[in-house]
């Protein structure tokens, strides 16, 4: 046992005791009726007209956090690009995964795209949403890369899509800024509940963010996969 291990163990025991003590207080008293969450539960539908209240928190009430989350993804991609550097053109790539996997990946592609888009749009009124849909979209692009590493996804295309999606999101935000003097304000009309184009500009933001998350995940994975090949 050296000093570091002892101090680490002390820290872990301290944290465990603290959280255990917190549990006693928090667990029995967690029915908060006056918090912000309760306010949103009762006011989100009349104010915004969105059925999925988590979506309206994510995109409207706490829209800046979502913009920040997209920014973190963008930072992570940029930093990973900086760290991993450019791929050498003559670098060897991983061996091909074989006929069955390749065919299956190609077959899966359209279905994954449809499923991802469906979950993305469905998140407006029911369970599902931007994050889940985006992750499935990323899988759609990444499964073919895994199956045949020699023909990776075209970097240019993915970077273009990424840039366009972020720019669209920023433009929506900026338009909102000028229309209402408030960042991420809601643009379009309210519409009626349970239609796709209701709840102001939420559906637009929804689609844009979903595609952004999808392309960002795919971009990170593709970049990691390329380095491994170049080793």
């Amino acid at each position: 046992m050296n000093l570091r291990e002892i101090s680490s163990l002390v820290f872990i025991v301290w944290l465990g005791l603290l959280l255990g003590a917190v549990l006693k207080i928090v667990a029995y008293d967690n029915i908060l009726t006056g918090g912000v969450g309760t306010y949103i539960l009762t006011h989100a539908a009349p104010e915004l007209g969105a059925e999925n209240i988590v979506t309206s928190v994510l995109l409207a009430y706490r829209g800046l956090d979502t913009l920040g989350e997209l920014t973190v993804l963008f930072v992570a991609i940029t930093a990973a690009g900086l760290v991993l550097g450019q791929r050498r053109t003559d670098a060897p790539s991983d061996s091909d995964a074989g006929f069955i996997l390749r065919t299956a990946a190609n077959l899966l592609f359209p279905f994954l795209i449809i499923l991802g888009t469906y979950i993305l749009l469905q998140g407006h009124f029911s369970p599902g949403g931007v994050f889940q849909g985006g992750a499935i979209l990323a899988a759609a692009f990444f499964v073919p890369i895994l199956a045949s590493p020699a023909s990776p996804l075209h970097h240019r295309v993915s970077r273009l899509v990424e840039g366009l999606v972020v720019a669209t999101f920023m433009i929506i935000c900026l338009l909102a800024l000028f229309s209402d003097d408030a960042f991420l304000a809601l643009l379009l009309g309210k519409g009626s509940v349970s239609q796709l184009f209701s709840a102001y500009s939420l559906p637009l933001l929804h689609i844009v963010i979903g595609f952004q998350i999808g392309t960002a995940f795919a971009g990170i994975l593709a970049r990691l996969q390329e380095t491994e090949a170049s080793d």
Partner: peptide, 23 residues
């Protein structure tokens, strides 16, 4: 508070990348 956490992460992730930028 949570927004502060998000901005803190932006700064943090950017600084990991920059710290390694000498290559």
């Amino acid at each position: 508070l949570f927004n502060i956490y998000v901005f803190y992460e932006i700064v943090a992730v950017a600084s990991y990348g920059l710290a390694a930028s000498r290559g």
